[in-house]
Design a protein around this nucleic acid. Structure first.
Lengths: 203, 203
DNA sequence: GATAGAAACTTTACAGTGTCAATTTGGGAG
DNA sequence: CTCCCAAATTGACACTGTAAAGTTTCTATC
């Protein structure tokens, strides 16, 4: 797990992923440039191709890393929680938190346009995140609503939380130190969750 | 409203918007190129700059046009409907329908990265779409749930419907003729709406 | 330990891009 | 008819992604 130094450069793939995330965080996915990333990593402009093929390959690798971070964050978030609904809310907060602390990864994770969605590393990492959500909803279904359409509920939840994360990241003054959402944002997440869980047409 | 022919080319701005939408529909926002658009419109590569400044300017104009289409679609969708909840569902279907029939516009509308979100035409068009959603939810709130947090509900609804549209557009065989969602998709929209309206934790 | 071979990286080259500045073209007002 | 201004073109620049060929460095085998 420590950086294997079997390459000339130490661990160039990791260095390139990291430089990419920084660059995207600074300039957005649009401002990304393969040559600028190579410059920041201190290698020639063609070096990335050797490890990732094309730009898409590199960005896909960044996205996969992001989904791994998300998966881990989900696991940590629910580790000490029993109540199914509290668990789901914690996952929502974890999602927003990951988006805030890893803006470079987040900026690329949901831009399927930029990614090779057939890449095995990517499908495995994103699938593993999604599976955790599915499981959380299955537990809620078992406890509260056996007739629930789990697939639809998961898709809707994912969309909502993603939209919420976009909303929060675009709100100024919503982060305290650039990593954790403020209490105001956390409260917003709770309100979203209640809306989603109990609906807004019901009395 | 008819094409004013006060330019050499007839109405180049409109022609460029149209060519842009086609190109984006073919190759996605990433495959977009100002020079290719100019080629398709039969003008030199620098002609677009004269009307839109930069690439961002052109894409912003396309996005604004898309939001106008959406606003109009909302209005038509609810024209003959009284029941507030049925109205909201109709708006959801209209959203998906617009996304399916205008993939070029849709591909750019929600990529804030590519747009000048301060452009007055854009803010007016997108604001007008969002206002229609807000109003629809206010009516539901008045009829069913006076305590509803309308802003949060609107944000969540927009996110969910957008996610649903992304889901449907990425599903093969879900469109019959490229413009209207199939019955299967329409049913999916209803299921989403019910989940959103009545929640999934409630019995 | 020398040496072949493979992997990591560089160099060079090419077609394409966005934007800018300097021109040319064309239609309408005086 | 002439002048003028908007519309559009031409040419240039720095930059991009990718491909091919060449160079360096590690590794494994004799």
């Amino acid at each position: 797990m420590t950086t294997s130094s079997s390459y000339h450069h130490g661990d160039l793939p990791a260095a390139l992923r990291s430089a990419s995330a920084e660059l995207i965080a600074e300039r957005g996915p649009t401002g990304f440039s393969l040559r600028e990333v190579a410059r920041r990593a201190g290698v020639s402009h063609a070096a990335p191709a050797h490890h990732f093929g094309t730009t898409t390959g590199l960005l896909t690798s960044v996205a996969a890393e992001g989904y791994q971070l998300l998966s881990n964050a989900f696991d940590e978030a629910v580790a000490d929680i029993d109540d199914p609904i509290t668990r789901l809310k914690a996952m929502g907060k974890a999602y927003v938190s990951v988006a805030l602390s890893n803006p470079g990864h987040f900026g690329v994770m949901c831009n399927k346009e930029l990614l090779d969605t057939d890449n095995p590393d990517f499908t495995e990492a994103s699938g593993s995140s999604y599976t955790r959500l599915l499981e959380a909803i299955e537990v809620i279904s078992a406890a509260h609503n056996p007739d629930l359409d789990i697939e639809a509920a998961a898709a809707m939840t994912w969309s909502s939380v993603h939209g919420l994360a976009l909303l929060i990241t675009s709100m100024p003054m919503v982060t305290q130190d650039g990593t954790e959402p403020t209490e105001a944002a956390a409260e917003l997440i709770d309100r979203f969750a209640d809306l989603m869980l109990y609906g807004y047409a019901a009395r």
